[in-house]
Design a protein around this nucleic acid. Structure first.
Lengths: 233, 233
DNA sequence: TCAAATATTGACGCGATCTTGACGACAACT
DNA sequence: AGTTGTCGTCAAGATCGCGTCAATATTTGA
């Protein structure tokens, strides 16, 4: 769940903002002082911080600066002061937004959503989902398989079977595990399927019985040999 | 140099904001209408956009939404309207900040700095408005598509489907992913839609079964072939 | 409001894929 | 040697997913 840390010394405001956030299913933590806020952020980093500038111990802007030394957590500043200089200072010290009191709850929530959007992890293209086991290349993004440079056409179940083995190179996967991963959780004992598909895979992978890629572990399951791990084998 | 696009239909405001930005060594571009803004962002993507909501042609919030279809460029909204509902809507439609007129120049500049700070954090996803995959050209800003130089008319859903595939050239997008991106988060199992739209797209793209552009990955999803990535096919 | 464009849903044929049963090979154990 | 159980292989039938067309509902725009 999304964690929000609300920092303010007025219990009334904490209660109001906290309730609004909880109603939206956020996980809310609170702090009443600057030091408590810094400790809380360090101990259990929230996804976003709502920070009142008027704290009894440390100036809110200093809290911003201190936190920014080691954390990029989004900070939404609340303040009764509308002073332009103060706004500029807070924003330049690392605050991501500045809301002047009195503010509307709906607006604060919207600005919190914006802050969270910024921290949203990018669905980066760097998750190279290409598995290589020996001369077998399984590209999970393209759902394509190559063996020794030659493209191999696999059916959906064949692909799922091979990809599963390729994710655990050299490791034995039990009949039960394979069935549940490929066929679904309700399967587990239909090992005839495995024999059929292992056979088809060996055929399509052009597997040489003298130097097999797909190994049967009798009574247990199957594995894909990993030349990188056991060059002697 | 850092590029800022300022969008407003009041010359006075353009001049004032433009001057303040230029004095800080920003590279300033301007647009007076929503359409001009969208075109400018597509043509020469700025590092941040300052967008007035009160435009003569398209509503500023719609501009936000349109731009967000393909770009993550930070948008700082300006508005004379202080209405809470409008603020929330703009922020939820993709605006990163909302400044109510009259505003202080210093504050606007500080908020622009914040927006730029965010931009740096996200290295650079693909903010390309025009996608090219083989001989298919998808202009996300104009919602137009060309195949081998010929314009193709697509319905909104057809366009969204194709643009999604074009954003991930060569990659398989699962049925579920496509449904959620094109139809909405509440969809996920209506794969009949996909068959209908894939069929229509193939027809409109004049797809040759012998050299298909739109590939079905049985049991998984669809992908657009990327000749640049796999010339061997 | 009406007409056109678009989206949704149902029906159906086709082909690939999956499932199932049968059978022989092989090894371990009795 | 016989028995038993697992494995590999094959092939026939059942099933499922896909593409396609068309009818209906809904939305959009004038």
């Amino acid at each position: 769940m999304t964690r929000v840390l609300v920092v303010d010394d007025e219990p009334a405001l904490l209660r109001a903002v906290g309730a609004a956030l909880k109603a939206r299913d956020y996980d809310v933590a609170t702090a009443a002082t600057g030091q408590a806020a810094i400790d809380a952020i360090a101990l259990t980093p929230p996804d976003v911080v709502v920070l009142d500038l008027g704290l009894p111990d440390i100036d809110g802007i200093v809290v911003c600066r201190r936190v920014r030394e080691w954390s990029d957590v989004p900070i939404v500043v609340l303040s009764a002061e509308g002073s332009e200089a103060r706004k500029v200072q807070a924003l330049d010290e690392g605050a991501d937004d500045y809301v002047t009191k009195p503010f509307s709850t709906a607006e604060l929530l919207a600005r919190i959503r914006v802050a969270l959007r910024h921290r949203k992890d990018t669905p980066s293209p760097d998750d190279e989902a290409v598995l290589r086991v020996g001369d077998v290349v399984v590209d999970q993004a393209r759902h394509s398989v190559e063996v020794a440079g030659n493209k191999v056409e696999l059916t959906p179940k064949e692909f799922a079977f091979l990809a599963l083995l390729a994710r655990w190179p050299g490791r034995v996967l039990t009949h039960r595990t394979i069935l549940q991963e490929v066929w679904g959780p309700e399967y587990g004992s239909e090992s005839q399927y495995l024999r059929v598909y292992a056979s088809q895979l060996r055929k399509k992978l052009d597997d040489d019985p003298a130097a097999p890629r797909l190994i049967t572990e009798p009574g247990v399951g199957y594995r894909l040999v990993d030349p990188a791990a056991e060059p002697a084998g």
